[in-house]
Computed example of a mutant assay.
Amino acid sequence: MTGYAGRGVHGTTVELLGSRIVDGTMAPGEVLDLREIGSRMDLSLTALREAIKVLAAKGLVDSRQRRGTFVRERAEWNVLDSDVIRWRHSAGDASAMLDELAEVRAIIEPSAAGLAALRRTDEDLADFEQALADMAAAATGTAEQAAAADLAWHGLLLRSAHNEMLASMNVLVEPALRVRDSLVHNHTTDDPVPSHRAVVDAIRAGDPTAAVASTRALLDKSADDLSRVLNLLDSKESG
């Protein structure tokens, strides 16, 4: 997942401030003395003010007369923003974030599959077959290719429900799902096709009950895969 790092002074400034806010170095409610921060970090006021605009759009900071610029409460952050997700991951908050993602997916994806079973078109079914073929091919490729194929399949699932609001949920879920997929596909060689094929077969059959059940089974497997990888990483760190 790309962020602001590497985009010149502006990007570096956003990255420095954003990561410090998310990891708690700059705590909620803290007033940011831009002149002091600029002096300490060797940043210009212009760069800081531009960065503050970006961080304000992400819900991390706000500016008020007589109060100045301050860090907003965590509940006000845009936790679905791709940079906020990345900063949470870097701050060691990945486990909690991925638990939240699993809960959101458990609400959205089975319902999408049920609707897809009732509304899918021939074009949707052809796209699903291509997505499964891409997933099978990516299984012998890089972790990045495997993650991309998985993301494409899950985006297609939401679109196949033919509900514009539901389809737009992919934009919200995709950044966190990308983090999850990168972790899992870097540490497992398990074949993902059968569990995804079961969902497609139920959608093809026009069976919403089976589509919901197979999607829940897929998500259960996804949670097990992630848990196994996180336990593996924990054991390596403790060892």
Score class of each variant (00 low, 15 high):
191 D>I: 08
16 L>W: 05
59 G>I: 11
110 P>M: 08
71 V>I: 10
95 S>R: 10
55 L>W: 10
103 E>Y: 07
18 G>W: 01
117 A>Y: 13
11 G>R: 00
95 S>A: 12
168 S>K: 09
88 R>D: 02
101 L>F: 11
133 A>R: 10
23 D>V: 05
57 A>S: 14
213 A>V: 11
4 Y>F: 11
171 V>Y: 08
111 S>W: 09
3 G>L: 01
63 S>K: 11
205 A>H: 04
115 L>Q: 14
19 S>W: 00
203 I>K: 01
192 P>I: 06
120 R>A: 15
49 R>F: 12
52 I>H: 04
131 A>W: 08
64 R>H: 12
192 P>S: 05
96 A>R: 08
219 L>D: 12
213 A>E: 15
203 I>N: 02
169 M>D: 10
25 T>A: 07
134 D>E: 14
26 M>Q: 02
87 W>G: 03
23 D>A: 00
182 S>H: 14
182 S>T: 15
115 L>C: 09
148 A>S: 11
237 E>W: 01
123 E>H: 13
141 G>Y: 03
26 M>K: 01
50 E>W: 08
26 M>C: 01
165 M>D: 13
195 S>N: 03
32 L>H: 05
214 S>T: 15
76 E>K: 02
167 A>T: 13
62 D>P: 03
99 D>W: 03
51 A>M: 10
115 L>F: 12
58 K>Q: 15
122 D>K: 13
13 T>K: 00
211 A>N: 09
113 A>P: 14
195 S>R: 12
171 V>C: 03
126 A>Y: 11
239 G>E: 03
79 V>S: 03
199 V>D: 02
225 D>G: 02
219 L>R: 08
185 H>G: 06
236 K>C: 03
208 P>W: 04
